[in-house]
Computed example of a mutant assay.
Amino acid sequence: MTNAPVLPVIDITRLGSDSLADRRAVARELDAACADYGFLYIKGAQLDGALFDSLVARAKAYFALPTATKMQSYIGLSQNHSGYVPVDEEQFAQSSVDLKEAFDVNLDYLLPTGRTPLLGPNLWPEMAGFQDDVQAYYRHVTGIGSALFRSFALALGLAETHFDALTSHAPSQLRLIHYPHDDTACDRPGIGAHTDYECFTLLFATAAGLQIVNKQGEWIDVPLIDGTMIMNIGDMMEILSNGRYVATRHRVKKVVEERYSFALFHACNYDHVIVPVVQNEVPLYAPLKCGEHLYNQTAQTFAYLKRRIASGELVLNAAVPLDSFGQRAVTTA
């Protein structure tokens, strides 16, 4: 790993301080990094390296299983869009089909929900220890996310607890992703260019490969830094901040070594309507229903949902095209 950051590095340790001044100081740093870049690194006492290591080991063991075994928990069999995602399942817009496999986990929502997409019990594989390790990581990183939501509230001039009730049972998704190394894959990307749909993402990865678009419209590499996670702004935080923070397009290029990454996408509650929250500004964005946006964007990328749309089984409501947020820059290859 390299120690030459191309993005800001924010120490979030003081978000756990009893001093409001300490928490405000972190919020100012977070605000500046998100306004200037939309991508940053976070570090701090909150990050539990042992949990990260356990999840890496578990993911390696899981993805090494035969495809037939993994397909027993295929995401298309789930109630809440959870489970195994095989290679060739996802495609962003007109880009190449992604060269990756994944296992997706949502909030394990056990209350009655009718037929609300994305809410329900997770589909888990029959692998000893898998659910325990994944849920431990999910709880840990959503806890960090809760502290960051409070920091965003301070940064945007709101009450520190503004987002607490709005994220109490959010369909925040964790993706365990395996990017195989394949010399025969030409320039097929690990994941095509896109913005994330939610408020913000916290990412831990084992190898390089992530690229982002800078303000000049150029693709730049994001190296890994020991002891950090990568954080980025998504569509919903762009709206909430009324454009102060802009969702940044990113991709994973063809990897030069096997890569595992763990992305937790932090959202608001399914039924919450996302609107700009900045005071004394004319809203620049129309309201957006959180769960509807998540599902609509997902349905435009996953093959099993595209098949349901094509058959007429699934009809999307008020879906905006993929890549509707973020910089409108022309990017270079």
Rank of each mutant, 00 (worst) to 15 (best):
F204P: 00
D132Y: 08
G209T: 08
A165G: 01
I177P: 00
L176T: 02
H181G: 01
V134R: 03
C186G: 13
M237Q: 13
F152H: 04
L203C: 05
S151H: 02
C199T: 09
A159S: 14
P117D: 05
D187L: 13
L118P: 02
L148T: 00
I220L: 13
P180Y: 10
I239V: 15
C199V: 08
V213C: 11
L156Y: 08
H194M: 07
V134K: 02
T161N: 15
L202D: 00
M127W: 01
N122P: 01
A205N: 04
V222T: 05
Q131L: 05
P112H: 13
L224C: 10
R139Q: 14
A247C: 05
H169R: 14
R139S: 11
H181F: 15
G243F: 08
S151Q: 01
G157C: 08
F149V: 01
D226F: 10
Y245I: 05
L156R: 09
Q135R: 13
V222E: 01
D226Y: 13
P125D: 12
A136L: 06
Q173A: 09
I144C: 00
T206Y: 09
Q135L: 15
S241P: 02
I233A: 02
H178E: 02
R150G: 02
L156K: 05
L202F: 05
L174F: 11
G234F: 13
G243D: 03
N214E: 07
H169K: 15
L174C: 05
G209P: 01
Y197Q: 06
G120D: 01
Q173G: 07
N232M: 11
H162E: 10
P125V: 13
I212N: 01
I177T: 11
A165P: 00
S151N: 00
T116I: 14
F149Q: 00
D196E: 10
L166A: 09
P112E: 12
E160P: 02
P117I: 05
T167A: 13
F130I: 06
R175G: 01
N232P: 08
L210M: 09
Y245Q: 06
